[in-house]
Protein backbone atom coordinates (compact mmCIF):
# COMPACT_ATOMS: atom_id res chain seq x y z
CA UNK A 1 0.00 0.00 0.00
CA UNK A 2 1.45 3.33 -1.07
CA UNK A 3 1.56 6.09 1.47
CA UNK A 4 -0.88 8.87 0.75
CA UNK A 5 2.03 11.28 0.29
CA UNK A 6 3.57 9.13 -2.43
CA UNK A 7 0.30 8.72 -4.28
CA UNK A 8 -0.20 12.46 -4.07
CA UNK A 9 3.19 13.03 -5.64
CA UNK A 10 2.42 10.59 -8.44
CA UNK A 11 -0.99 12.12 -9.05
CA UNK A 12 0.42 15.64 -9.23
CA UNK A 13 3.10 14.43 -11.59
CA UNK A 14 0.43 13.14 -13.94
CA UNK A 15 -1.52 16.38 -13.71
CA UNK A 16 1.65 18.25 -14.55
CA UNK A 17 2.29 15.94 -17.51
CA UNK A 18 -1.25 16.57 -18.79
CA UNK A 19 -0.58 20.29 -18.65
CA UNK A 20 2.71 19.83 -20.49
CA UNK A 21 0.90 17.80 -23.15
CA UNK A 22 -1.15 20.86 -23.94
CA UNK A 23 1.38 23.60 -23.43
CA UNK A 24 4.37 22.06 -25.20
CA UNK A 25 2.62 21.28 -28.51
CA UNK A 26 1.06 24.74 -28.53
CA UNK A 27 4.46 26.27 -27.94
CA UNK A 28 5.90 24.07 -30.68
CA UNK A 29 3.17 25.04 -33.15
CA UNK A 30 3.83 28.70 -32.59
CA UNK A 31 7.61 28.30 -32.70
CA UNK A 32 7.52 26.22 -35.89
CA UNK A 33 5.27 28.70 -37.65
CA UNK A 34 7.44 31.62 -36.63
CA UNK A 35 10.65 29.82 -37.51
CA UNK A 36 9.55 28.62 -40.93
CA UNK A 37 7.33 31.55 -41.76
CA UNK A 38 9.68 34.35 -40.81
CA UNK A 39 11.95 33.99 -43.89
CA UNK A 40 8.90 34.56 -46.10
CA UNK A 41 8.01 37.83 -44.42
CA UNK A 42 9.12 40.85 -46.37
CA UNK A 43 7.63 44.15 -47.35
CA UNK A 44 6.82 42.67 -50.71
CA UNK A 45 5.02 39.70 -49.11
CA UNK A 46 2.58 41.84 -47.17
CA UNK A 47 2.14 44.57 -49.80
CA UNK A 48 2.09 42.79 -53.15
CA UNK A 49 -0.65 40.85 -54.91
CA UNK A 50 -0.25 37.08 -55.36
CA UNK A 51 1.65 36.12 -58.52
CA UNK A 52 2.32 32.96 -60.55
CA UNK A 53 -0.94 31.29 -59.50
CA UNK A 54 -0.42 32.25 -55.84
CA UNK A 55 2.99 30.55 -55.77
CA UNK A 56 4.85 33.82 -55.46
CA UNK A 57 4.21 37.48 -54.81
CA UNK A 58 2.38 38.62 -51.70
CA UNK A 59 -0.84 38.31 -49.80
CA UNK A 60 -1.90 41.94 -49.68
CA UNK A 61 -5.43 41.45 -51.07
CA UNK A 62 -6.07 38.70 -48.52
CA UNK A 63 -4.95 40.93 -45.64
CA UNK A 64 -7.09 43.81 -46.84
CA UNK A 65 -10.05 41.51 -47.48
CA UNK A 66 -9.84 40.11 -43.96
CA UNK A 67 -9.68 43.59 -42.49
CA UNK A 68 -12.73 44.71 -44.48
CA UNK A 69 -14.74 41.64 -43.54
CA UNK A 70 -13.80 41.84 -39.88
CA UNK A 71 -14.53 45.56 -39.59
CA UNK A 72 -17.82 45.01 -41.38
CA UNK A 73 -18.82 42.30 -38.95
CA UNK A 74 -17.99 44.40 -35.91
CA UNK A 75 -20.02 47.33 -37.23
CA UNK A 76 -23.08 45.08 -37.22
CA UNK A 77 -22.31 43.01 -34.16
CA UNK A 78 -21.15 45.65 -31.68
CA UNK A 79 -24.30 47.80 -31.45
CA UNK A 80 -26.64 44.83 -31.34
CA UNK A 81 -24.42 42.91 -28.95
CA UNK A 82 -23.91 45.85 -26.63
CA UNK A 83 -27.61 46.71 -26.47
CA UNK A 84 -28.41 43.04 -25.89
CA UNK A 85 -25.90 42.97 -23.06
CA UNK A 86 -27.49 46.11 -21.58
CA UNK A 87 -30.86 44.43 -21.79
CA UNK A 88 -29.62 41.33 -19.98
CA UNK A 89 -27.70 43.16 -17.30
CA UNK A 90 -30.01 46.12 -16.65
CA UNK A 91 -33.53 45.33 -17.79
CA UNK A 92 -34.14 41.58 -17.82
CA UNK A 93 -36.12 40.20 -14.93
CA UNK A 94 -35.31 36.78 -13.65
CA UNK A 95 -38.00 35.03 -15.64
CA UNK A 96 -38.69 32.57 -18.40
CA UNK A 97 -37.92 35.01 -21.20
CA UNK A 98 -34.54 35.80 -19.72
CA UNK A 99 -33.75 32.11 -19.45
CA UNK A 100 -34.71 31.67 -23.11
CA UNK A 101 -32.42 34.50 -24.18
CA UNK A 102 -29.49 33.04 -22.28
CA UNK A 103 -30.12 29.64 -23.80
CA UNK A 104 -30.30 31.21 -27.26
CA UNK A 105 -26.92 32.88 -26.71
CA UNK A 106 -25.39 29.58 -25.59
CA UNK A 107 -26.76 27.95 -28.72
CA UNK A 108 -25.62 30.72 -30.98
CA UNK A 109 -22.14 30.24 -29.56
CA UNK A 110 -22.34 26.51 -30.21
CA UNK A 111 -23.61 26.44 -33.78
CA UNK A 112 -20.84 24.93 -35.95
CA UNK A 113 -19.06 27.54 -38.03
CA UNK A 114 -19.86 25.78 -41.29
CA UNK A 115 -23.55 25.94 -40.43
CA UNK A 116 -23.15 29.71 -40.18
CA UNK A 117 -21.72 29.48 -43.66
CA UNK A 118 -24.82 27.64 -44.88
CA UNK A 119 -27.09 30.12 -43.15
CA UNK A 120 -25.23 33.09 -44.61
CA UNK A 121 -25.45 31.54 -48.05
CA UNK A 122 -29.18 30.89 -47.75
CA UNK A 123 -30.22 34.23 -46.29
CA UNK A 124 -27.74 36.90 -47.39
CA UNK A 125 -26.32 35.53 -50.63
CA UNK A 126 -29.49 33.99 -52.04
CA UNK A 127 -32.56 35.28 -50.22
CA UNK A 128 -31.50 38.93 -49.93
CA UNK A 129 -29.55 38.65 -53.20
CA UNK A 130 -26.41 40.30 -51.81
CA UNK A 131 -24.44 37.64 -53.69
CA UNK A 132 -21.09 36.42 -52.44
CA UNK A 133 -19.89 39.75 -51.09
CA UNK A 134 -18.21 41.52 -48.20
CA UNK A 135 -21.67 42.47 -46.97
CA UNK A 136 -22.87 38.84 -46.86
CA UNK A 137 -19.66 37.65 -45.21
CA UNK A 138 -19.63 40.42 -42.63
CA UNK A 139 -23.26 39.85 -41.68
CA UNK A 140 -22.66 36.12 -41.33
CA UNK A 141 -19.60 36.64 -39.13
CA UNK A 142 -21.45 39.32 -37.17
CA UNK A 143 -24.09 36.85 -36.05
CA UNK A 144 -21.38 34.34 -35.23
CA UNK A 145 -19.44 36.70 -32.93
CA UNK A 146 -22.57 38.14 -31.35
CA UNK A 147 -22.48 35.70 -28.40
CA UNK A 148 -18.86 36.63 -27.60
CA UNK A 149 -19.68 40.33 -27.55
CA UNK A 150 -22.89 39.87 -25.56
CA UNK A 151 -21.30 37.63 -22.94
CA UNK A 152 -18.20 39.71 -22.31
CA UNK A 153 -20.07 43.02 -22.39
CA UNK A 154 -22.66 41.70 -20.02
CA UNK A 155 -19.97 40.60 -17.57
CA UNK A 156 -18.41 44.03 -17.82
CA UNK A 157 -21.74 45.78 -17.16
CA UNK A 158 -22.61 43.50 -14.27
CA UNK A 159 -19.24 44.08 -12.65
CA UNK A 160 -20.18 47.73 -12.09
CA UNK A 161 -21.38 47.73 -8.46
CA UNK A 162 -25.13 47.96 -7.93
CA UNK A 163 -24.60 50.70 -5.36
CA UNK A 164 -23.48 53.13 -8.11
CA UNK A 165 -26.80 52.62 -9.85
CA UNK A 166 -28.67 53.13 -6.60
CA UNK A 167 -26.84 56.37 -5.93
CA UNK A 168 -27.64 57.58 -9.41
CA UNK A 169 -31.34 56.75 -9.04
CA UNK A 170 -31.43 58.40 -5.62
CA UNK A 171 -30.33 61.67 -7.22
CA UNK A 172 -33.25 61.42 -9.61
CA UNK A 173 -31.54 60.00 -12.67
CA UNK A 174 -33.64 57.87 -14.97
CA UNK A 175 -32.69 54.33 -15.80
CA UNK A 176 -31.19 55.25 -19.15
CA UNK A 177 -29.29 58.22 -17.70
CA UNK A 178 -27.85 55.89 -15.09
CA UNK A 179 -26.77 53.39 -17.72
CA UNK A 180 -25.42 56.08 -20.01
CA UNK A 181 -23.48 58.09 -17.43
CA UNK A 182 -22.55 55.59 -14.72
CA UNK A 183 -22.71 52.00 -15.93
CA UNK A 184 -21.43 52.24 -19.50
CA UNK A 185 -18.34 54.41 -18.89
CA UNK A 186 -17.17 52.02 -16.20
CA UNK A 187 -17.75 48.96 -18.35
CA UNK A 188 -15.89 50.23 -21.41
CA UNK A 189 -12.64 48.29 -20.86
CA UNK A 190 -14.60 45.05 -20.55
CA UNK A 191 -16.68 45.85 -23.62
CA UNK A 192 -13.51 46.67 -25.53
CA UNK A 193 -12.02 43.33 -24.47
CA UNK A 194 -15.06 41.50 -25.80
CA UNK A 195 -15.05 43.46 -29.02
CA UNK A 196 -11.40 42.69 -29.72
CA UNK A 197 -11.91 39.01 -28.89
CA UNK A 198 -14.81 39.04 -31.37
CA UNK A 199 -12.59 40.67 -33.98
CA UNK A 200 -9.93 38.02 -33.44
CA UNK A 201 -12.44 35.23 -33.80
CA UNK A 202 -13.91 36.72 -36.97
CA UNK A 203 -10.45 37.20 -38.48
CA UNK A 204 -9.55 33.55 -38.04
CA UNK A 205 -12.73 31.86 -39.20
CA UNK A 206 -12.86 30.21 -42.60
CA UNK A 207 -15.98 28.09 -42.84
CA UNK A 208 -18.51 30.95 -42.50
CA UNK A 209 -16.90 32.92 -45.31
CA UNK A 210 -16.40 30.00 -47.69
CA UNK A 211 -19.67 30.51 -49.56
CA UNK A 212 -20.50 34.05 -48.49
CA UNK A 213 -17.55 36.19 -49.54
CA UNK A 214 -14.23 34.42 -49.98
CA UNK A 215 -12.65 34.58 -53.41
CA UNK A 216 -10.26 31.86 -54.51
CA UNK A 217 -8.01 34.27 -56.38
CA UNK A 218 -8.71 37.92 -56.89
CA UNK A 219 -5.62 39.97 -57.53
CA UNK A 220 -7.21 43.33 -56.85
CA UNK A 221 -8.75 45.09 -53.91
CA UNK A 222 -12.53 45.03 -53.44
CA UNK A 223 -14.18 48.28 -54.40
CA UNK A 224 -17.56 48.03 -52.76
CA UNK A 225 -19.52 46.15 -50.14
CA UNK A 226 -20.95 43.98 -52.87
CA UNK A 227 -17.58 42.74 -54.12
CA UNK A 228 -16.05 39.42 -53.27
CA UNK A 229 -12.78 39.54 -51.41
CA UNK A 230 -9.86 37.31 -50.64
CA UNK A 231 -9.38 36.48 -46.96
CA UNK A 232 -6.32 35.29 -45.10
CA UNK A 233 -7.68 32.08 -43.56
CA UNK A 234 -9.29 30.98 -46.80
CA UNK A 235 -6.13 31.88 -48.70
CA UNK A 236 -4.11 29.69 -46.35
CA UNK A 237 -6.57 26.85 -46.96
CA UNK A 238 -6.36 27.33 -50.70
CA UNK A 239 -2.58 27.38 -50.98
CA UNK A 240 -2.30 24.46 -48.56
CA UNK A 241 -4.71 22.12 -50.25
CA UNK A 242 -5.94 23.40 -53.59
CA UNK A 243 -2.84 24.70 -55.34
CA UNK A 244 -0.06 22.20 -56.01
CA UNK A 245 3.62 23.03 -55.70
CA UNK A 246 3.35 26.11 -53.54
CA UNK A 247 6.63 26.84 -51.83
CA UNK A 248 6.36 25.83 -48.18
CA UNK A 249 7.81 29.19 -47.25
CA UNK A 250 4.78 30.97 -48.71
CA UNK A 251 2.38 28.74 -46.80
CA UNK A 252 4.19 29.21 -43.52
CA UNK A 253 4.47 32.90 -44.16
CA UNK A 254 0.71 33.16 -44.70
CA UNK A 255 0.06 31.08 -41.59
CA UNK A 256 2.38 33.35 -39.63
CA UNK A 257 0.63 36.53 -40.73
CA UNK A 258 -2.77 35.07 -39.87
CA UNK A 259 -1.58 33.71 -36.53
CA UNK A 260 0.09 37.00 -35.68
CA UNK A 261 -3.05 38.98 -36.52
CA UNK A 262 -5.29 36.76 -34.38
CA UNK A 263 -2.96 36.28 -31.43
CA UNK A 264 -2.06 39.95 -31.41
CA UNK A 265 -5.70 40.93 -31.02
CA UNK A 266 -6.16 38.36 -28.26
CA UNK A 267 -3.09 39.60 -26.45
CA UNK A 268 -4.32 43.18 -26.65
CA UNK A 269 -7.65 42.06 -25.20
CA UNK A 270 -5.91 40.17 -22.39
CA UNK A 271 -3.71 43.16 -21.57
CA UNK A 272 -6.66 45.56 -21.47
CA UNK A 273 -8.49 43.21 -19.15
CA UNK A 274 -5.44 42.84 -16.93
CA UNK A 275 -4.82 46.58 -16.71
CA UNK A 276 -8.46 47.20 -15.98
CA UNK A 277 -8.51 44.71 -13.11
CA UNK A 278 -5.40 46.27 -11.65
CA UNK A 279 -6.67 49.82 -11.89
CA UNK A 280 -10.23 49.19 -10.83
CA UNK A 281 -11.37 52.06 -8.67
CA UNK A 282 -13.74 50.13 -6.47
Amino acid sequence: MMSSRTSEKIAFLFLFLATLLIVVPVGLIIVIIIQKGWPAISWEFVSDIPRQGMRAGGIFPAIVGTIYIVLGSIIFALPIGLLAAIYLSEYAKNNYLNRMIKLAIVNLAGVPSVVYGLFGLAIFVIFFKFGASILSGSLTLAIMILPIIITTSREALESVPYSFREVSYSIGASKWQTIRHIVLPNAIPGILTGTILGLGRAAGETAPILFTVAAFYLPQLPKSLFDQAMALPYHLYVISTQVPNVDEKVRYGTALVLLFLVLFMNLVAIIIRYQFRKKKKW
Binding site: I22, V23, V26, S113, E205, L258, L263
Partner: peptide
Protein backbone atom coordinates in the same frame (compact mmCIF):
# COMPACT_ATOMS: atom_id res chain seq x y z
CA UNK B 1 -1.12 28.84 -18.12
CA UNK B 2 -4.58 30.35 -18.34
CA UNK B 3 -3.34 32.91 -20.82
CA UNK B 4 -1.67 30.11 -22.80
CA UNK B 5 -4.90 28.13 -22.90
CA UNK B 6 -6.76 31.23 -24.05
CA UNK B 7 -4.25 31.71 -26.86
CA UNK B 8 -4.62 28.07 -27.89
CA UNK B 9 -8.37 28.62 -28.13
CA UNK B 10 -7.69 31.60 -30.35
CA UNK B 11 -5.53 29.81 -32.93
CA UNK B 12 -7.63 29.66 -36.11
CA UNK B 13 -8.63 26.14 -37.05
CA UNK B 14 -7.21 26.57 -40.53
CA UNK B 15 -3.80 27.19 -38.97
CA UNK B 16 -4.10 24.06 -36.84
CA UNK B 17 -5.17 22.18 -39.96
CA UNK B 18 -2.17 23.48 -41.85
CA UNK B 19 0.24 22.54 -39.08
CA UNK B 20 -1.40 19.11 -38.84
CA UNK B 21 -0.94 18.66 -42.58
CA UNK B 22 2.74 19.46 -42.61
Amino acid sequence: LKTGIELLAAIPSVVLGFIGMV
